[in-house]
Design a protein around this nucleic acid. Structure first.
Lengths: 226, 226
DNA sequence: TTCCTGAAACTGTGATCACAGTTCTCGGAC
DNA sequence: GTCCGAGAACTGTGATCACAGTTTCAGGAA
């Protein structure tokens, strides 16, 4: 055995670079890799127990999605820092695209989706009560994209995924600062109700309100903090 | 000498994979690589006179931007085919984001930008008169992104770039079908005038109208054709 | 002519190595 | 204690190879 510690099992049986992509993506979305810190191909490879090659492929993809950045001088990898300008652009893009996806999903909602959303929301509340930031962010992501995936709009869906990926690290920083106390979950109930009624405009409004509250908290935190 | 025909010089002195990315990107935007056709790492590498490695990096990036697609069964590369649903989503996204970029750019417009735009528009008219589809598409792309780049909104700018990259191949197909005769250039004059007056709403309207006309032509062509 | 079969060619994927550039660190000079 | 400079360690990049899976195509059987 050469030097493969095999730290993380990396489930599934798809291509290794896809598994690596998902692993890094999850760490980014849940904020387990903090903004501003540097990463490297070989360190990621060692941590995930794979060779640098599939990591290189996954990182290329993440850089293209702006979830990772390359220092033009150094050519070294890092997680992009969140500036006020970046947050404003990401907020505006999200506020347009995600309510749109919810509106498209509403007429196509069925009982299975409603039940899935209720289950996710229950897990979200549990995590919220326990102060489990990782659990909350995972459930919150699952909630939104369970809705969006039903829209059938794959192009817009992938754009939303890219935006979430870029904003994920910051959410973690904000929640670590303000705590999980004042996090919105009531809007989720509104969204579920609108989907149940197949009310496109209601779903649009509920998601828009949910995003607006969350992004506003982040805006305040970013302007106040670093 | 092993086997490097060096067919295309690949200007600049940046990293090879970036030059390869730009080369493929240009071929996609101007439609020199048609939708639906298959490409391969080694064939692209041979055509560009480089080893497969930088091509692999560039292709990863293009796949992440949805400018290329991977057949899940085959794992083979191809240029995505344009469906009516995809066109509708891309149109809607462009109609939101590009007028927004123009509106942001208007207050920041200066004399140098105006002159650059007039120069590009002149080249565009020349290409149009000569029936030069490549020249028209290159100039049209340059015109729009000269404006958008001035907005300072880098996140939205890269999103617009990704959308253009996805829709480029189709534009070429449409223009090859309907000819360059009925292509809109008058809206460009409107846009230049609005930017000169630093009129954000005027710029937004002009770009929206320009896009709407072009996208509508494409919609008709896609629904009629294949 | 039509069908089928097996070999050759081609596909993406992953591993390994070499190389040039940057960063870090440890030791010595002052 | 402070500074600095040489060398080690680490960085991304590109090339080359091996491998398994798929496609393609020539050639023989019916």
């Amino acid at each position: 055995m050469p030097a493969a510690p095999q730290r993380v099992p990396l489930a599934d049986s798809t291509a290794i670079h896809d598994q690596v992509y998902e692993a890094i993506r999850q760490r980014l979305i849940t904020g387990r890799i903090a903004p501003g810190v540097g990463v490297s191909l070989r360190s990621l490879a060692a941590e995930l127990g794979v060779s640098p090659m599939p990591v290189r492929d996954a990182v290329r993809r993440l850089v293209a999605e702006r979830a990772l950045a390359i220092n033009p001088a150094n050519k070294r990898l890092s997680v992009p820092s969140l500036t006020a300008g970046r947050l404003e652009q990401l907020s505006q893009a999200r506020l347009w695209i995600e309510p749109e996806l919810a509106a498209r999903a509403a007429p196509l909602a069925d009982e299975a989706l409603i039940r899935a959303l209720q289950g996710i929301d229950a897990r979200l509340d549990t995590a919220l009560a326990a102060g489990d930031v990782d659990g909350y962010m995972t459930a919150n992501h699952a909630f939104h994209f369970a809705i969006y995936a039903r829209s059938g709009a794959d192009v817009l869906l992938s754009m939303a995924g890219g935006l979430w990926l870029q904003i994920g690290p910051f959410m973690r920083v904000v929640f670590g600062r303000v705590g999980t106390g004042s996090l919105p979950a009531d809007r989720h109930a509104e969204a579920i109700a609108a989907l149940k009624a197949r009310d496109a405009q209601g779903a649009r409004r509920a998601i828009a309100a949910d995003l607006f509250e969350g992004m506003d908290k982040m805006r305040v935190a970013v302007e106040a903090g670093s």
